[in-house]
Design a protein around this nucleic acid. Structure first.
Length: 720
RNA sequence: CGCGAGAUAGAGCAGCGGUAGCUCGUCGGGCUCAUAACCCGAAGGUCGGAGGUUCGAUCCCUCCUCUCGCAACCA
């Protein structure tokens, strides 16, 4: 599919960052940096390319963040959109347009898209039960429902996730759900929604991904898709009951109060961004989305694979657009031994790096290139990778500084010392094998880099460029012009050998500028400055040429391209990271089975508190605790943590499903006395109805212990 | 349990059927033009484990163990 003849035009997208906060270097390494590198390469090739991105500004997390910050959704996106855009700019991410999904042109585009699919019968509608707040007269998004976390008993877990234990939830799982709008318990109410019937498109997806792209897409991407397709595709809701987002077109019956689900509207943002770009530049956007000779590439992180490889392509195909040629998704980047996490504050934000390193007094934009270098070097192209500050320092000091920067610096310094500050002539008749080899290596590197970039192997491509500088160092070492210079007094002809060596080294330097440009654009510019050549020289077609610099031309005094990074700097960063991190361990959680009151404490901080909110005796008295004996236990099939227990409570024997399989073997606990919550509403787990709950205590090591009487007593004895 | 990805020198990674390779680090040597930089050389791996296919397997197949995701699940 790829690697055929050159496409007429390219449309490159990078995942739309969600405008509810700052973005970290994992995002940068995952999507924006490889996309930018690829785009800069294409531009240097003078290809017709548009690089679009923008803020994703819909979805429920935006109004939620607004509540958190005590402001409006509009204010949130207006706050984060420009910061994110500026951060990208500071790091040299060169979007042709950084748009936003709150823009009217996007609303129009998304509504048209929906309308078109709906008119053609490509969407279906279904009624379903959703939580509804009667007082606020509003359906509740998952995030607007709070309740007790079924996992950690944290009383203020959200309907989609518990902020205390990080568990993903659905609203139905919450104990004692409460609407955060009114504080009342929500009711279930029927509502109609539009769905995209993915199941209709299984055959298309199988053929397109699993057959046609089985070999040119990354194995991680194809694997994920296969997993999804084999798992059975289901209709997916494309609308929500919400007032923040793109309104469902009024011309569609039943549209009142409905907005497009954010995942449906966000990728359409690529299209609206392209439209806006076309308006700004007096171009036609249509060929970029409709013409078969356009090569569309989505750069994303692995969390976005399903949207860009399954859902969006189905939408595009139904709507008559072109499909992506490739979706080079990256895996995730860890940080200093742990997953990056916004909620635990274990992250390095682009903003932080910019403040600490890119500010003029700390190194300026050259330091943006250092980050670009290291992130490309460790990019999680085939598996998760890890950012460490030590690695960052090593990469900078021993590769960028010692190999790349040093080669260019010594070439320039030597030229000033031995060639009077001018580009020396090349004496072709005196060229030897070493010279020719060096020259050949430049062309060879160009070809390797091209091939690797076309295959989205950015790390390998960058290595080849650095390796060319290494070759330069080796060449210079073998030629030893500084030694040759000592013969000058007795043999003036020796100057010609010096000239040849430095001529080649300087042409090599100019070539390095071209080859490094897609990766480290600020560095390429600085090399141009040092060589006193215009940026035009960076056109890719110039790579491999030995005539980039004119003989006799005088150059600037050398300046260092990169500075060393000192130990203190990285120690400071590691300390900063650790100090800011939120301790994930629950402070006190010796109560896996206790039943806390689902507090109406809306607005409280989502942190674990040592003691739960106070309750009155009546609250406690509602809980019916009795002692029982486990008479039978078996593992529940297809569940890691569940045991199905039969518990004798004296007056009856009940089935209770308990999540303790990781801690106890069934045979070891038969005969144990336990404390049971008898009046807990029954709940189905894995298809088995559980009638009660076993109380457990969890120690610091996470091990569970039964709460039971010191000595055996009658089953059915009350506990208070 | 299921699905996906991974497990290769001290660290980080490449290789994916034919004498195990790269970068950093370590050790020894050389050079001194250069940001104590550069160049040369060495040590260091039974390629997670067990089977199988093959003339031959790190690379293919099967099973197992562990890690990370997803899904499930957490009363």
């Amino acid at each position: 599919m790829s690697n055929q003849e050159t496409p007429k035009r390219y449309l490159i997208t990078a995942a739309l960052p969600y405008a509810n906060g700052l973005k970290h270097i994992g995002h940068l390494a995952g999507a924006y940096l490889p996309a930018d590198t690829y785009v800069r390469y294409l531009r240097a090739q003078k290809r017709d390319v548009v690089f679009v991105c923008g803020s994703d500004e819909h979805g429920t997390a935006i109004p939620i963040q607004a509540t958190k910050e005590g402001t409006t959704a509009q204010a949130i996106i207006d706050k984060y959109h420009p910061i994110i855009e500026q951060n990208f700019n500071d790091l040299g991410i060169s979007f042709d347009i950084y748009h936003r999904t709150s823009d009217p042109i996007h609303h129009e585009t998304a509504r048209e898209f929906f309308q078109s699919l709906n008119d053609k019968g490509d969407l279906i509608t279904k009624e379903s039960e959703q939580y509804f707040d009667e007082k606020a007269a509003s359906f509740l998004a998952d995030r607007y429902i709070k309740g007790t976390c079924p996992n950690c008993a944290y009383p203020a877990a959200y309907g989609d996730q518990c902020e205390n234990c990080g568990k993903s939830l659905s609203p139905d799982e919450l104990i004692n759900p409460v609407s955060t709008l009114s504080g009342n318990a929500p009711i279930k109410k029927s509502t109609k929604h539009w769905y995209l019937p993915l199941d209709r498109h299984e055959a298309f997806l199988r053929k397109w991904i699993l057959e046609e792209h089985a070999n040119d897409w990354r194995s991680t991407v194809v694997g994920q898709c296969k997993s999804w397709i084999d798992g059975g595709l289901l209709p997916r809701a494309v609308t929500r009951d919400l007032d923040w987002g793109v309104k469902v077109p009024e011309t569609v019956e039943g549209s009142a109060g409905k907005v497009l689900y954010v995942w449906f509207d966000a990728p359409i943002g690529y299209i609206s961004a392209t439209k806006q770009w076309a308006l700004n530049n007096d171009k036609d956007w249509k060929p970029y989305w409709e013409s078969k000779d356009t090569k569309l590439v989505h750069f994303i992180g692995k969390d976005n694979i399903v949207f860009h490889c399954i859902i969006f392509p189905v939408m595009l195909q139904l709507h008559g657009n072109i499909l992506p040629d490739n979706v080079p998704a990256n895996e995730f980047m860890n940080l200093e031994g742990d997953k990056m996490s916004t909620s635990r504050n274990w992250k390095l934000e682009m903003e932080d790096y910019i403040n600490d390193f890119i500010k003029p007094e700390n190194g300026g934009s050259q330091m943006a290139d250092v980050l670009r270098y290291y992130l490309t070097l460790i990019a999680p192209e085939s598996k998760d990778s890890e950012f460490t500050w030590k690695g960052f320092q090593d990469a900078n000091n021993s590769e960028l500084v010692s190999i790349f920067g040093n080669f260019i610096n010594r070439a320039l310094v030597l030229m000033h010392k031995l060639c009077k500050g001018k580009i020396p002539p090349l004496h072709a008749n005196l060229l030897d094998e070493l010279d020719k080899e060096a020259i050949d290596n430049i062309k060879a590197t160009k070809e390797k880099v091209e091939k690797l970039l076309e295959e989205y192997k950015f790390r390998d491509a960058l290595f080849e460029v650095i390796n060319l500088a290494r070759i330069g160092n080796q060449y210079m070492q073998k030629k030893e012009p500084w030694i040759v210079a000592k013969q000058l007094a007795s043999n003036p002809e020796a100057q010609k050998l010096i000239d040849n060596c430095l001529h080649i080294c300087l042409q090599l330097t100019a070539n390095l500028a071209i080859l490094i440009n897609p990766f480290l654009p600020f560095t390429a510019k600085k090399i141009c400055y040092l060589l006193k050549v215009v940026d035009k020289i960076l056109d890719w077609e110039n790579a491999g040429s030995m005539k980039l610099l004119s003989v006799g031309y005088s150059l600037r005094a050398p300046e260092l391209l990169f500075r060393k990074i000192e130990d203190e700097e990285i120690i400071k960063q590691v300390e900063k990271l650790k100090a800011a991190a939120v301790n994930k361990e629950p402070i006190v959680s010796a109560s896996v089975g206790t039943l806390p009151k689902a507090g109406p404490d809306s607005g409280s901080e989502p942190r674990a508190s040592a003691v739960k909110p106070e309750i009155v005796f009546d609250d406690f008295a509602k809980i019916d605790l009795k002692v029982g004996t486990i008479v039978a236990a078996e593992k529940v099939e297809k569940a890691d943590k569940l045991l199905k227990l039969q518990v004798d409570l004296g007056f009856e024997t009940r089935t209770i499903v308990s999540g303790i399989a990781m801690h106890f073997k069934p045979e070891d606990i038969v005969g144990k006395q336990v404390t049971v919550v008898c009046n807990l509403a029954p709940r189905k787990m894995r298809g088995i109805e559980s009638n009660g709950m076993i109380l457990m205590a969890e120690d610091a090591a996470g091990k569970l212990h039964f709460i039971n009487p010191e000595t055996a007593i009658d089953n059915g004895s009350g506990v208070s």
